[in-house]
């Protein structure tokens, strides 16, 4: 009787201790997160005012950020599109409302899987891209649009490549394709079809295309 009572008491104590330990561990775990949530103080901004209006983030004032591009080029950026969440494959944004005329140029960011179309200093379009597989990588550098073809059909791959903007003589181009996750091209830049249609209308032969690896 006595030993049974002792045993049950010990068991109860063990259970309580286990519960206490779990609670303590939960508390310990919760604490560092609270510590992480406090951000480190950022260096004070040295540039101009940033204004968000509707679909755009504008840089106003004297100094505008510049983008350093492959080939040693620098481009001033006055506004970019406001896309607050990560885009999905096949998504794109095109907004050239109120953007004045200017030279069109394109920046392809291979690592971030993005393309940005600029008119002058303003970004007017952005989309998720497909790029070359490891075996056939997309070349980086500064290119110009060599040729435009609305209904192009690749002989090498026996595949339709609508709204094709050729960049190199050996066949690297920007063209419409089915942009899905997990797929790659043979060196081309694949963009959603509707985006490709707009880019095709926007770009002219000789326009600059920068591919950032």
């Amino acid at each position: 009787m006595a030993s049974k009572a002792v045993r049950s008491a010990l068991a109860l104590a063990g259970v309580c201790a286990a519960v206490g330990l779990v609670a303590l561990a939960a508390v310990r775990r919760a604490e560092p997160e609270a510590a992480v949530a406090a951000p480190p103080a950022a260096p004070p901004p040295a540039v101009s005012r940033i204004v968000e209006d509707g679909s755009r983030i504008r840089y106003e004032g004297a100094e505008h950020p510049t983008l350093t591009l492959p080939g040693g080029d620098h481009k001033i950026v006055s506004s970019v599109l406001k896309i607050s969440r990560p885009m999905q494959f096949g998504d794109f944004v095109w907004d050239d409302k109120g953007v004045p005329e200017g030279p069109t140029w394109v920046r392809v960011d291979v690592a971030r899987q993005l393309i940005s179309v600029f008119r002058g200093e303003h970004e007017i379009g952005s989309a998720v891209i497909l790029y070359g597989a490891e075996s056939k990588p997309t070349p980086g550098g500064a290119f110009t649009v060599l040729q435009k073809a609305k209904d192009y059909h690749s002989r090498t791959y026996d595949a339709p490549m609508p709204f094709m903007l050729r960049l190199t003589d050996d066949g690297v181009a920007i063209h419409a394709s089915n942009v899905r996750e997990g797929f790659a091209t043979h060196g081309c830049i694949g963009i959603p079809r509707e985006f490709a249609r707009r880019l095709f209308a926007e770009a002219r032969v000789g326009d600059a295309v920068f591919i950032q690896k």
């Binding site: 970019v80 896309i83 899987q113």
Partner: peptide, 14 residues
């Protein structure tokens, strides 16, 4: 302030 970090925010990742 950095357009590149804005691009990073909208990127689907590597």
């Amino acid at each position: 302030r950095d357009p590149l970090s804005i691009f990073a925010m909208r990127s689907p990742g590597e």
